[in-house]
Amino acid sequence: MLNQIMQSRLRGVMLLGLILIFLPAFFANPFHYELAIQVGIVAATVVGLNLLVGFAGQISLGHAGFFGLGAYFSGIATGTYGWSSIPALVAGAIAVGVVAWIVGRPILRLKGHYLSMATLAVGFIIAIILENERALTGGPDGMSVPPLEVFGWQLSTFGRYSLFGLEISGVQAWYMVAGVLLVIATWFALNIIESPIGRALRSLKGSEVAAGVVGVNTTKYKSLVFVVSAVYASIMGGIYAHFQGFITPDLASFDFSIVLITMVVIGGMGSTFGVILGAVVIELLPQALADFQELEMAMFGLILMVTMIFMPKGLLPTLNSVVPNITRKKAAEVRHDSTG
């Protein structure tokens, strides 16, 4: 039984890794790489948000705020103060974790719409601070961020690198970074879910009362998952800042928070691989429908509504339950035909 779960979790992560390895075979130009990197970074963020929303049943309509904070922390620490990237990412994650813990404690007592409103306010406040602290952040005009520095390499999308004697371009190197981070983010999330901590988190959604009477400190676990999901957002925000090389307070905007939540919902709350698929779909949709750019937010709203009405479990879990049904039906038909 335990083995089975171990194996299925391993299998999932390995499948994800394989897809990421073979995906570039379909890339025709650097733009495809850049798109994939962006999707990967956002997907890892959503995997973290899903712990809070999909598994623990809490809501955050301000999660872009933590993404933005992480982006600006990395941007300012490396750009203005000359830190190297990894210490900046780590310090940023700690700082954002502390912020999330401080704001989370009072607001996580709230439920439902009240929690939505409070997290929404948190996101707004962060965005406003980023816009107004011009001296630090450059205000609404944004700021530029130096390339990511890993193991002594300056990783720029325009660069050229050699890895084990192989010539690779900047976007290819970045693709590897984003891919590895997405796999790690997924692996950590799956490990959390299948653990005593993960059960405590899921019990917050299943029955908070039951959680309490068996000894789960519900306040503590709500704070914990809020902080963990904020740390995911912070790190991926920092990575994103290095990748884009330029950031604006839009990263912390309400619009982006809604995009993140939409990915969780359409991907299937509580399915880690589902929300990755959700991130892929929502990130690629605007590319496919480039003509409707002004209606983007309206479209997300529509997608959100349609999903909640027709696929309340989300994309992947719905596919999961529909596909076997179809095959079973086919099998039944075949049997019917052969007997009839």
Binding site: S195, P196, I197, R199, A200, R202, S203, K205, G206, S207, V209, A210, A211, V213, V214, G215, V216, L224, G270
Partner: peptide
Amino acid sequence: QVCMNMTAIENVMLGLHLRFNSGL
């Protein structure tokens, strides 16, 4: 008050939360 988002045995394992917890 059963957590319907979990398996049966996970519900019982939830009851063991205080005894078999692990750090982050």
